[in-house]
Amino acid sequence: MNIQHKLGAALASVSLALLAACGGGGGGGTADTGTLGLSLTDAPSCGYDHVNVAIQKIRVNQSSTASDTDAGWTDLAFSTPKRVDLLTLTNGVLTSLGQIPLQVGHYTQMRLVLAANDSTNPLLNSVMPTGGSEVALDTPSGVQTGLKMNVDINIAANQLADFVLDFNACKSVVSAGNSGKYQLKPVVAVTPNFISGVSGYVDASLANGNTLVSVQQGGMVVKATAPDATGKFLLQPVAPGSYDLVVTAPGRASEVVTGLTVTASTVTLLNASATPLTLAASLSGTAAGTVTTTTTPIDASVRALQTLANGDKVEIIGRAVDATTGTYSYALPVSATMVAAFVAPQGTLSFSADAATAAKFGLEASSAGAVKTAGPLTLTAGGATTTNFSFP
Rank of each mutant, 00 (worst) to 15 (best):
N178A: 12
S179A: 15
E134S: 02
S205D: 09
V135C: 09
D228K: 09
T191P: 03
Q236T: 07
D152Q: 12
Q183N: 15
D152G: 12
Q183G: 15
L165F: 07
L147T: 13
Q159P: 00
M149E: 10
V188A: 14
G142D: 04
A224F: 04
A224K: 11
G219Q: 14
T225C: 07
S133V: 07
K223Y: 03
Y182S: 10
L206N: 09
C170A: 15
N210A: 13
M220I: 07
F163D: 05
A189R: 15
P192D: 01
V187N: 15
S172T: 13
V151I: 12
T145R: 15
V187I: 11
P192A: 14
A229G: 03
T191W: 04
V188E: 14
V213M: 10
P237T: 09
A176P: 14
I195C: 01
S179Y: 13
G218M: 04
A189D: 15
E134T: 02
Q216H: 11
D166S: 13
L235F: 14
T225P: 00
S199A: 13
D203M: 01
S214T: 13
G219H: 15
V164G: 07
T139D: 13
T139C: 15
D162C: 00
K185L: 07
L212K: 14
K232M: 03
Y182V: 08
N154V: 09
N193M: 01
Q144G: 09
F233S: 05
T211Y: 05
V202I: 04
C170E: 14
S141T: 04
V164Q: 03
D228H: 10
V222Q: 12
D228G: 04
D203A: 13
N158I: 00
A224H: 05
N208D: 14
T139F: 08
